[in-house]
Amino acid sequence: MSAARNLSELLTGGTEITIVCHNNPDPDCLASALALGRIAADAGIDERHILYSGDISHQQNRAFVNLLDIDLRPFETEAVVDRRPDSLLAFVDHSVPGDNNDVPAGTRVDVVIDHHPADGVDATFVDRREAVGACATILTEYLRKLDVDVDPVLATALLVAIRTETLAFLRGVTPAEYDAAGFLHDLADQETLRRLVAPSVTGETLDTIATAIGNRTVARSVLVSGVGRTGERDALPQAADYLATLEGVETAIVFGIVRDAIHVSARSPDPRIHAGEVLHAAFEDVGSAGGHHDVAGGQVPLGIFADDTADDASLLTLVDEVVTARLFDALAIDEGER
């Protein structure tokens, strides 16, 4: 029996489903949650909830939610811990309680659909395909195999998700993405699609990218840059995407302080470097980090630095020095090469 049929059978036995997005959800996570909700509705589940933690700060992500009118609710621990026996809990685009989500470790999970590397995945239904370019690709396959109606809103969401996750079909793309996109193209709302593909950019995002350019340090073909404090968490991956296109740069890593944590974003077209493993090695003892060979991210609580300095300027300097050193050490680049 196909994964789609197995999922449908599991959903048929439930009366409620809570779909938890990962922290600060992106279009791939949001579209996948929307699609799973539609599949659950087709299976007869009337109570469906999509929860998220963190921020939806990237301009494209905000436009995505607003233009597609996605019904999201802030995460509440009680909604996943104190649920009924016939209430299902699902993860899309992430896999493990407590890892890039606010679900308490050890919570029973019923459905996991993901395309990221992960250890310790435990759920009644698991479909995790690291070779696939987007989680939305997997959900599109389910919709087609289960013959679930795909309206323009859902088609637009999934198509934007696949396009965004693969950097317009230039990163990590497989034949499955092209097949899914071909199916979705004629069903999508083309005007909404155009508006979502090229949303407006905030001034703070441009300032953050400019700061990353100005603060860059390059050793061999690796670029590392700290931007200090920023209110635009999603400006960090945008800066990394841009800096990775500079001549002579094969790996770009950008970090900055967002509220009470240091966020790190890496991009590495270089096949010799696994960005996820580099970030994991750099920060596994102080935070959480990982990802694919070409795209990765991490987060370190600022509290481990806060007690070591009295003023913000000194804190920023300390963070810049320590994070930069950890990254170059993880990349085996000696101090004399920096």
Rank of each mutant, 00 (worst) to 15 (best):
L167T: 11
L246G: 08
L243D: 09
H58I: 08
G297R: 03
V150A: 02
V121L: 04
V264I: 15
E16R: 15
N66D: 11
S95R: 05
L246V: 01
V20L: 03
V150E: 00
E250L: 10
R83M: 03
K145C: 06
G290N: 01
S268D: 07
I56R: 00
T211S: 14
G291W: 05
I213R: 14
I50P: 13
D127M: 04
I113C: 04
V323Q: 10
D55Q: 06
T192L: 10
E78D: 15
L51R: 01
L187M: 10
V258D: 01
G336L: 11
L89M: 04
A118E: 11
T164H: 15
F328T: 14
P237V: 14
D186R: 12
N100G: 06
A40V: 08
V96I: 14
D99E: 13
G231M: 07
V160A: 00
L236I: 14
L327P: 02
T208D: 12
V109Q: 02
F75S: 04
I17T: 05
V286M: 11
R163Y: 09
V197R: 14
R338K: 11
V80G: 03
S225K: 05
D82M: 08
E9Q: 15
R171T: 11
D308F: 00
T324I: 11
R73V: 03
L196N: 09
E16W: 06
P74K: 12
V112P: 04
E9A: 15
D71M: 05
I209V: 15
N215F: 13
I209Q: 10
A90N: 00
P269G: 08
